[in-house]
Design a protein around this nucleic acid. Structure first.
Lengths: 135, 135
DNA sequence: CTGGACCTTGCCCTTCAGGGGAAGGTCAAG
DNA sequence: CTTGACCTTCCCCTGAAGGGCAAGGTCCAG
């Protein structure tokens, strides 16, 4: 049986489209389990871990935080299907995104109004004591 | 002529609805000019500075950064009306807000789609090797 | 004259997801 | 044998806008 060559951190990082720094950081944050080591102390990643990195990348694309991703991974590691939890996370994420969008939109409208005023303004009528009357 | 009593930092902060820490920070960042001191070294704020703090608060409400606010203040301090610059800042701010809103909206739509899938999912059909097929 | 409320500077801490770089060990090729 | 490309841990830095706390000085009322 052809034992797989070891997968060093740089290789795993490149395969996952990220950096060695990120991989160590994920490990520290509990997203990657304690990984095997060579005699010299080099990390040796399995194919499984590489798949895990794929998952992490997809989750990040959905805007999940590392903490949220870690929670999902923990459920899967406990042997359960994380579907229900993932659904909850996505619901919260939707809620949060809606909140942020609403907040930014409100700010945008307010700023647009101020911009209208200042665009129509006569600098000579600005009161220096207010610094700028349109803000 | 009744000389005004000194306005200490705590008083000025309270009047502006902020904290002493913020006032020292603004000074350090160049938003407040070097302020008068009493013999004991206490800062003594003038009525002008309090008006300046009002302006800073209004600008922050428009989502401007301290750096942007400082630039506007510098123009006013140079003796010019900052209208044109303020208009430019507001335009950039609008542009930036639109960009952020578009980005969040795109993410929201993508997440909504994933949520739909996971909500209709059968946990038994989840492939453990992918962690979660819906992310 | 003493207590408490205020002020001063200076220093570290916070969130997030790593990045940069030092000091030192290891591995394969020439 | 050496060189260069890897790897290890450790520690500090980023950005925004301050917050918290310590050690010490000051002001005012009782």
């Amino acid at each position: 049986m052809a034992r797989r060559l070891i997968v060093r951190i740089g290789e795993a990082a490149a395969a996952a489209g990220t950096t060695t720094k990120a991989l160590r950081f994920y490990e520290e944050r509990g997203l990657l389990p304690a990984v095997g080591r060579t005699d010299a102390g080099y990390r040796d990643y399995s194919q499984e871990t590489v798949a895990r990195l794929e998952f992490i990348r997809r989750s990040k694309n959905a805007g999940l935080s590392l903490a949220q991703i870690r929670d999902i991974l923990e459920i899967r590691d406990a042997g359960d299907a994380p579907c229900a939890h993932v659904r909850l996370q996505l619901e919260q994420q939707l809620f949060e995104l809606d909140r942020q969008i609403a907040e930014l939109t409100a700010l945008r409208n307010s700023v647009a109004k101020q911009h209208e005023f200042v665009a129509a303004a006569d600098p000579a009528r600005c009161n220096p004591e207010e610094i700028c009357s349109y803000l």
